[in-house]
Design a protein around this nucleic acid. Sequence first.
DNA 1: CTGAAAGCGCTAACAG
DNA 2: CTGTTAGCGCTTTCAG
Lengths: 338, 338
Amino acid sequence: MSTIRDVAADAGVSISTVSRTLNNPSYGPLETRKRVLDAARKQGYRPSSIARSMVKGKTGLIALVIPDVRNPFFTDVARGVEDVANKYSHGVILCNTDEDPVKEHNYLEVLRGKIVDGFIIAVASENNRELTKVDRKKCPFVLIDRTCRGVEADTVIINNRKGAYLAVDHLLKLGHKRIGIVTGKRDTLTGRDRFRGYVDAYERHGIPLDDNLIKDGKFSIEGGYEAMQALLNLTEKLTAVFISNNAMSIGCLKAISEHGVRIPDDLAVARFDDSLWAPFFTPPLTVVRQSPYTMGSLASELLFQRIGGSGPPERKEIVLNSELVIRQSSGGMLPPEA
Amino acid sequence: MSTIRDVAADAGVSISTVSRTLNNPSYGPLETRKRVLDAARKQGYRPSSIARSMVKGKTGLIALVIPDVRNPFFTDVARGVEDVANKYSHGVILCNTDEDPVKEHNYLEVLRGKIVDGFIIAVASENNRELTKVDRKKCPFVLIDRTCRGVEADTVIINNRKGAYLAVDHLLKLGHKRIGIVTGKRDTLTGRDRFRGYVDAYERHGIPLDDNLIKDGKFSIEGGYEAMQALLNLTEKLTAVFISNNAMSIGCLKAISEHGVRIPDDLAVARFDDSLWAPFFTPPLTVVRQSPYTMGSLASELLFQRIGGSGPPERKEIVLNSELVIRQSSGGMLPPEA
DNA sequence: CTGAAAGCGCTAACAG
DNA sequence: CTGTTAGCGCTTTCAG
């Protein structure tokens, strides 16, 4: 890899002239300019972004740290983040923690080393302690989707509790008495609040909770599969189920299909998260819809305000709304041709 | 952000002692060691990964550059890449080019600046010229899924042509004469070879091609939707369709559903790419299955061989196999209860 | 075991 | 307009 020095030598000028020529489209006499550009091209020279970042103190990159890169929710968030970042001439690097605090720790370690100008993170667990140590003045960050204990950063989340409430309430109103729930990780805001919404709905309808109907699916496909298995094997059958995210619903659907249980006749189904295929599934899935793209773009805007130093002194928290989309899997809508 | 100098001052030692203490678990007398560690902790010191990379010449990071972060195929690839990278104590940063050569160019520019020790890329277009300029000795990279003109790097792809052939041949054997195809971007290996497989099958069966049955879906959901619309509006109806990837199939399914066309009765459907929901779709989708995770992990292994300098001098090309999974959407399998 | 000093490749004053 | 010089924060000889 050739350096600026090689180019300078080749062009017969000093390194500063090379630097200026390359960074300033209107620098120097055409003759010199051409010599430099030619030398650079000939050597296939690319300035070291590391060296550049070192002196400038910024990298032109932000990071998005997410717990599950295979979850469409987070990749939609990523698209929102990217579009805004591009607007501010920044690139986005994605770091997947796989819901693993160790991987998360490792990435955070690197990121804190100023490899990015700031980052957006959906924590693997709200007990992450690393974040409390990050100096937000020097490396700003914003929390999305999940809050973190003891961290007072800008935040964009949605109203999980209400969303879950809406779905379970819908099921309850349809006459279901035994509604199972496949919960997400309890050490996350989303896992906990969606469960709370479920409890809220039960209380509102004056129906006592049954612990057997509550299974943890850990936000993963496998977890969802196992939780659903357990639910379907209950001696006292359930007639409906609420699943706390899309990944788990894949596992649940598999279990349901294997058990030969029909939706919604034998089991009404509702889940958190809309998805591209949800409307085309048979029967179309009743879901709580959020706006991941919006979440990502708002978070990104917030971050760039901090990076630009124009954010308000106090912490900003945005709570997005979620919306119940009733389709046929919950049995709450008649099939189109019935 | 405190620097190594602040820590040194605080601990009353030189910066070299701090550096050594922090990097070498068994350095120095306990007394000094403790002083340094305490000072570092107190200041919340994190070594600058940039400065470190600058002097060491490597960053402990590799990049994965993909054209569509919302495509599950690529996120599965990412998981494969990550697992291997972690094995080699490296982190992975994802860069999404959105099938846009400009964004790709920008990322490549940054990456070439030695911000990563190497990268894996699925090019947005095989006409990418930037890659031909990257010095593989200094910044090794491997191509996945799609090849690139004039670039002689290690490559991991699959047998697209054969996979597509298998699917279309299957449809043809079922008696279909008018099979549409929604193609992917023609400036990519996958787009072109899958189309070739379609042509191969037609030729094999001695049926002339009909240009009206060929529509470009550009590998996107929207593109798939439009292509399918056009296909369904044909006066001379088609009885089957082959869709060249999963993203486009989402759009196609939407169009099919809107037209009130039934699968497989009115239209047999097969597509490239399996997915988590494909088996649970009604009817379950007939697909050409690839192994994205394997593709990612093999590519990652190849890359680390180069980074470690232990790769063979010559270019290595791995061609993975694809497999036809016949489900009910193609009408080639009787429904379970029939 | 420890400190001083030399860079990694680049940009940004500062002189000329 | 151009060259010289001083760092950015760190690791790593090289002396001591």
